[in-house]
Design a protein around this nucleic acid. Structure first.
Length: 166
DNA sequence: GCCAACGTTGGC
DNA sequence: GCCAACGTTGGC
């Protein structure tokens, strides 16, 4: 499936909460990307992010924030049931089965970068310097990445595109 | 730990 | 609907 409709995303996670290694260790390397509680990101997860899309895994809120791995979306948007669970830290009393409010996708581990690509690394690169994640004040935890950025990042990382023959 | 940027809440 | 107050994110 040389998928011309495939899109690419950057997803942020605080590694002490959920890291690229945590994702790798999951059964089938797959984990629901739950707990997103921002409407703009919700809209992306619900309407735009689709099965087969590529994901840059970004570690945020640490000493050296960086892109640390590659993943792919293996399930398109569906209701985030943690919003319905009063015991969950992501519980939202406004959410119901009929009107779930919040959505998530499933993400599967593809590869860890041999070396994390820090914000400095990205900023220095002619293509990657345009990435949204570098924009001051951008707090969106799911954000679009262009095909050019995806390719450039993989090249800089010294990897081949793991989605090439999927 | 600081603080800028941004989102949400709620009084009016 | 405006906007001040507040909470959160996240780089530095």
């Amino acid at each position: 499936m040389k998928n011309s409709k495939r899109r690419y995303w950057l997803m942020k996670s605080e590694p002490h909460c959920f890291s690229i290694d945590d994702l790798k260790k999951r059964p089938k390397g797959t984990e629901p990307w739950d707990g997103v509680r921002n409407y703009q990101a919700r809209n992306l997860l619900r309407d735009e992010v689709r099965c087969g899309d590529g994901v840059l895994f970004y570690h945020s809120n640490i000493k050296d924030p960086a892109v640390v791995g590659l993943a792919r979306v293996v399930r398109s948007g569906y209701p985030d049931h943690t919003a319905l669970d009063p015991r969950s830290e992501h519980f939202d009393p406004r959410a119901t089965e009929a009107a779930p409010i919040w959505f998530m996708v499933d993400v599967q581990f593809l590869a860890k970068l041999p070396v994390p690509l820090t914000r400095g690394d990205l900023a220095r690169h002619p293509t990657l310097s345009a990435m949204e994640v570098l924009r001051k004040g951008n707090r969106l935890s799911v954000q679009p990445v262009t095909l050019e950025q995806w390719r450039a990042l993989i090249e800089v990382a010294g990897l081949g595109d793991p989605l090439e023959d999927l």
